[in-house]
Amino acid sequence: MVAIRRQPAIKLAGLRSRLKGLPYHVIPTLLERFSPYRGWFPGQVDRHLFGALMQPAGNSAGFEYLTAVEVENLAIINADWEPLEIPSQHYAIFSHTGHLSNLRTTTHSVFANSLPSRQLTPLRHTPNVPLILERYSASFDIRSGWGEIQLWVPLDEARSDLPSIRKFEPASGR
């Protein structure tokens, strides 16, 4: 685990896809489809990419996946793009080392081992909060699948070990 951090609200804009199963086999395709827009969004904060795995609205099966960038203001985003404003909250942040094709293994380890061993509970069933937020560094190479990837897991503060959160939380910043 890299850190536990309280993150201010994040405003994302991008392309939303509906998936029947977990997205790991289609993430490269979704990133590739979005890549021409990286760096060209009005009000884009930086060149990081985000992948937000969401529960679908209602009782629908499967997942929704938003491939996006962080923007300063959602009001200037036109109807071609899906907005998502994620409220301020605590995240457990994990680093994925290796190729994008191995992201599934890291994600499984986070949920099966890392979170339970630290008495941390992921936040679930909360509107506008992803199940997991992938953050791809500005230097991440979409074509090769290599580069820095962080997995941000929203934490259920009421059910997590708060002393553990306080111990890891940095003083400030992103």
Rank of each mutant, 00 (worst) to 15 (best):
G145I: 11
L162H: 08
F41T: 05
G147C: 05
L131P: 03
I142G: 03
L133Y: 11
R166S: 11
R124H: 05
G39A: 12
R47P: 00
V71M: 09
N113E: 13
P127D: 07
L84S: 06
N59T: 10
Y37M: 06
S160R: 10
V45M: 08
I77S: 01
P8Y: 00
A112D: 13
A158C: 03
S144N: 01
D80T: 04
A138I: 01
L74H: 05
P163K: 13
H90C: 11
G58K: 13
P36F: 01
L123T: 05
R124L: 01
P83A: 06
G147S: 03
D141H: 14
V110S: 03
N73R: 14
E134T: 01
S101I: 12
A79E: 14
R33G: 05
G14P: 02
R33F: 01
I4F: 12
L84P: 00
L53H: 07
R16K: 11
F34R: 06
I142N: 01
N73P: 02
R104T: 04
N128P: 03
H90D: 06
R143G: 09
L103P: 10
P8M: 00
K11Q: 04
P163L: 01
R6M: 04
G173M: 11
T126Y: 09
R143I: 06
S160L: 05
R174E: 15
N113M: 08
M54R: 15
T97Y: 15
S139Y: 13
P42D: 11
N113K: 14
A75F: 07
P116L: 06
F111M: 09
S172K: 12
H25N: 01
G51P: 00
H125L: 14
S114G: 05
N128V: 02
Y37P: 01
F94V: 10
V153M: 12
L120Y: 14
P36D: 05
P36V: 12
F34N: 10
I77Q: 13
H25D: 01
S95D: 13
V110P: 02
L131V: 14
R124D: 00
F168H: 14
T29E: 08
I142T: 12
E134N: 03
S144Y: 00
A75Y: 12
E70C: 04
V129F: 08
T121I: 13
S35V: 06
P56W: 07
Y136G: 02
L31T: 03
G147V: 04
E157H: 07
D156R: 12
R135T: 00
D156F: 11
R166V: 00
D161S: 13
E148P: 02
R5Q: 15
N78G: 09
E32A: 07
E32G: 06
D161Y: 15
A57G: 12
A171I: 07
D156W: 12
P8Q: 06
E70V: 02
A13M: 10
R6C: 03
L162D: 07
L12D: 03
I86Q: 09
Q119L: 15
F94D: 03
P28L: 02
F94W: 01
T29I: 10
H125I: 03
L30C: 02
V129S: 06
